[in-house]
């Protein structure tokens, strides 16, 4: 556990993000707490605020995975107040299917796009010629005997 008083191990930063439309199929979750997980890079934890709390493991895939591009429509850019790439933080939801053996995938098709200044975000469904997977494999592979 990092010691918050040790300058070489700063406490993980946390931010509160606001998703006015929630997540797709989960519109009720509109406020999220984003906290880095420094012991497990490149992951962070996105926890929904509220009584019925759920959390998501997320990571930034832009600039990490080759050939991944996130293009917003004019309406989406305007709704989020994003004019250029630097304005945006893009988080992708990670699914940990199993730990032993590790099988981890990430959703590239439905990124969470957040305005870095206002912390306003929205889950965008990417369209266009590149069709990305909701289960892009990060590590491991589908067990042939699974459903």
């Amino acid at each position: 556990m990092p010691d918050p008083t040790d300058p070489s191990h700063p406490a993980p930063e946390a931010s509160t993000l606001y998703f006015p439309f929630g997540l797709i199929g989960m519109r009720q979750f509109t406020r999220f707490n984003l906290q880095a997980a420094p012991e497990s890079p490149p992951f962070s934890l996105l926890r929904a605020e509220g009584d019925d709390t759920v959390e998501f493991v997320v990571m930034e895939c832009l600039g990490v995975l080759d050939d991944y591009q996130v293009v917003l429509s004019d309406e989406e850019s305007e709704a989020l107040g994003i004019r250029s790439a630097e304005d945006a933080m893009v988080l992708n939801i990670v699914t940990i299917h199993s730990m032993e053996p590790a099988f981890v995938t990430v959703n590239l098709a439905g990124p969470l796009v957040v305005n870095r200044s206002t912390l306003l975000g929205q889950q965008i469904i990417l369209s266009g010629p590149n069709s990305y997977s909701t289960e892009h494999v990060l590590v491991g592979r589908k067990d042939v005997s699974s459903k």
């Binding site: 199929g25 989960m26 490149p42 959390e55 940990i96 981890v104 959703n107 909701t134």
Partner: peptide, 25 residues
């Protein structure tokens, strides 16, 4: 597409803390 993303969100959602994998990209 909507169903696919909704399903992916549901499958990814966790309730309560659990270990995170150590991966190298």
């Amino acid at each position: 597409i909507y169903q696919k993303i909704r399903e992916a969100n549901r499958e990814a959602a966790r309730r309560g803390p659990a270990a995170l994998p150590q991966i190298s990209l």
